[in-house]
């Protein structure tokens, strides 16, 4: 019987949260209990991370710790996915939308003549068909597409679009290494190392569950410390609008919006951000949006869950203190 294959990314020996969400999606899309759900884990540490998948849905974990899979290696990773898909006879391949899957799934789709839907907001089975919902035009429009089962389907899901399922203690998990096919290496692309960002040691906006974002109204780079304090209190990170980045207040890596990063955290704070359409495009997938602005007519309030009409320089430190007080058990 054909199987569902899930690409599971891992860091520090643990599967990433978005990948656990992709596994939860695989389980929801598998109505036939006999249909296998298989995980594929790549690179150093794959076998250790695989041990954490017990009870998360997969019946088999394939691991490939080939040395060529470290760093940015789109063609070897594509070869690994192709080999795994062949090994388990996969006709549905799922992954979390990520910097890795973005560069690999389109290549795999061309190789397999498959149908590809990346960064989906929702995947709903309708009989044999999968209906996928995706954002278009910077989130101002969505598209619906019915993908039939007549070809291999490759789908990536936006982080936090589905919830991970708590592990069930009963499921068994078989793990085994995936043999390296000949010529899996790609001598044309040499990864020469990772250069950590020279900043505050905060998470990347794509990895954070909580983002505290500011715009040009913060006026100086030093003033972003107010947002960093709240981010630390909530275990989150700091983001910025294009205007703040163009004014040199924050690095490009923190830019959120149409020409920056599209984020979907659990909680998003827009501090003194008016809500230009280009910025809203990057934050619509957030579960809860808090807007802080002195202008009650700012467009950001149309997109927000909670709106605070207040000066951010006054209010944000008060919120930080309130979070810390509650954490201290008051």
């Amino acid at each position: 019987m054909p199987a569902t294959l899930v690409l599971v990314e891992h860091r520090d020996g643990l599967p990433t949260q978005p990948s656990l969400q992709a596994l939860a999606l695989a389980r929801r899309l598998t109505s036939d209990p006999a249909r296998p759900v298989c995980a594929l884990l790549l690179g150093p540490g794959a076998a250790d991370a695989a041990a954490h998948l017990r009870g998360r849905g997969p019946t088999l974990a394939l691991t490939s710790e080939w040395p060529v899979l470290q760093g940015f290696r789109p063609r070897p990773v594509t070869a690994a996915l192709q080999a795994a898909a062949r090994t388990v006879d996969a006709d549905l391949i799922l992954a979390a939308a990520s910097t890795l899957s973005k560069d690999v799934l389109p290549r795999l789709a061309i190789r397999l003549n498959a149908t590809l839907a990346t960064d989906c907001l929702e995947v709903t089975p309708i009989g044999d068909t999968l209906r996928v919902r995706r954002a278009r035009q910077g989130g101002n429009i969505q598209s619906l597409q019915d993908i039939p089962s007549s070809s291999t389907r490759i789908i990536s899901i936006r982080p936090n679009a589905v919830e991970a399922i708590p592990p069930s203690p009963v499921d068994a998990l078989d793990a085994r290494p995936l043999p390296e096919p000949p010529a899996a290496d790609d001598p044309s692309t040499r990864w020469t190392g990772f250069v950590p960002a020279a900043d505050s040691g905060m998470k990347d906006v794509l990895d954070a569950d909580v983002i505290i974002a500011g715009g040009r109204s913060l006026k100086s780079e030093a003033n972003f410390a107010i947002l960093e304090d709240l981010a630390r209190a909530l275990g989150g990170t700091v983001g910025a609008t294009r205007a703040a980045v163009d004014a040199g207040l924050q690095p490009h890596a923190r830019q959120i919006g149409l020409t920056g990063k599209v984020v979907s955290p659990r909680l998003y704070f827009a501090c003194g951000i008016d809500g230009a359409i280009q910025h809203l495009a990057g934050i619509r997938g957030s579960r809860v949006i808090v807007a802080i602005n002195t202008n009650k007519d700012a467009p950001i309030f149309q997109a927000a869950t909670y709106g605070c009409i207040a000066d951010l320089f006054t209010l944000v430190p008060l919120i930080t203190a309130e979070v810390r007080r509650a954490d201290a058990g008051a």
């Binding site: 760093g71 910097t99 044309s188 692309t189 040499r190 990772f194 250069v195 950590p196 990895d207 890596a253």
Partner: peptide, 14 residues
């Protein structure tokens, strides 16, 4: 170079 979460990957391509 390309940006990845937490920093940048350095590459040498032919």
């Amino acid at each position: 170079r390309r940006r990845v979460p937490g920093g940048e990957d350095a590459l040498d391509l032919r």
